[in-house]
Design a protein around this nucleic acid. Structure first.
Lengths: 201, 201
DNA sequence: ATTAAGTTTAACCATATGGTTAAACCGTTT
DNA sequence: AAACGGTTTAACCATATGGTTAAACTTAAT
């Protein structure tokens, strides 16, 4: 019950992240995780009692990171437009660092929505900060009225989809002279900012 | 080698679609497919030699349907704006009928890009019709100049992501008074049309 | 009715897989 | 050095899984 060797546990978690994110709960193999971590398979069960428990640790971490990131939004000292531009920058930075995360979360929820329903209760940042922020700017008369919920869906679409579909784009954009890991990502980010700029004169 | 009972083969393919799309190649179980189809497991191997072959049949069908759909775009008799609006309608119709398809295709490509690379060669409609169509409208002076490749990415983002993320939205939009299966989908479609309208005065 | 060909099933097989256990291996305390 | 606690490993177990086989079944042609 004492302190466990943190580095081993972290090695396991890192490997589990990699394998679960790629193959999902059912597609992932414990032996694969052990090999990736460079340890014995029995150690997985020593640190995390079962495959499900290990998966939970990975999934909980992902949910926490994902939802807290989605709520990073600048304070009221800036105009709403600047805050949104910064929000776009943050999303692109986040998805660049964790390109597989949205796919992982969405896919696992689609397989097992009940589990997600249970887990979301224990999250601290479950409600979007973006929507009340937009609503406030509308109420202030800072921007013209529109539906902030629908706008949030559009904005997340524009930012998240290019990364979700990057396995496709990595192979298909070449035909049009673009390299995903090169200029494409930045050009897309600028185009997203262009897109939402129209909404704010 | 003669004609096989078409209904059994179709039952298998239907079940395989369902199970593979949900769990992916590695997560899917042959027994699960057999149970879903209501047949003996050995029959799967009688009609399709192996799990991989059965998966190929499903994946090839999905690729074919997906890429041919992405190229349905009206002819030059209409103004470019109307053609794009129709394109949006088509995408929303398609994703409503096959909500899991983009997820399935993208996920499997991300696990095994080489396989996709091989398969895409044998596709008839591999290159996007949207991009040359936009380029033509720009060259004609019908619309102001912009990058058609980046625009295509944005447009597909706006249309595809809401369905990709629908497992999430189904659970989260309720908090804001929306029902995914009710009004939300249509409101999002209209907002997408609004978004792209800005590009065309 | 018999044959022939395709179809379907139950019973099997070899291996993969999640999980367990007892022993070995540390590092620290006494 | 002995004892103790946490850590790691090899060997093992029960079941799941993809795949095979031989026999039973169905249908149509002769």
């Amino acid at each position: 019950m004492g302190l466990k060797d943190s580095t081993t546990e972290e090695k396991i978690l890192e490997a589990a992240k990699e394998v679960f994110m790629k193959y999902g709960l059912y597609g992932a193999r414990m032996q694969d995780i052990a090999d990736t971590a460079g340890i014995n398979k029995a150690l997985l069960h020593y640190y995390f009692r079962s495959k499900e428990k290990l998966f939970d640790a990975v999934f909980d971490g992902a949910l926490e990171k994902y939802f807290s990131q989605m709520n990073v939004i600048g304070d009221k000292s800036m105009p709403i437009k600047d805050r949104l531009m910064q929000y776009v920058d943050n999303m692109f930075e986040f998805f660049t660092e964790y390109p597989q995360m949205s796919m992982f979360i969405i896919k696992e929820i689609s397989i097992n929505p009940e589990m997600f329903h249970e887990k979301v209760k224990h999250l601290k940042n479950q409600k979007s900060l973006l929507i009340p922020t937009l609503q406030e700017a509308i109420d202030n008369g800072e921007i013209n009225s529109f539906d902030p919920v629908i706008f949030m869906v559009n904005l997340h679409s524009l930012c998240a989809y290019p990364f979700l579909a990057s396995p496709l784009y990595k192979l298909m954009l070449k035909k049009h002279g673009y390299d995903w890991n090169g200029e494409a990502k930045d050009k897309i980010k600028e185009s997203v900012k262009d897109f939402i700029s129209f909404k704010f004169q």
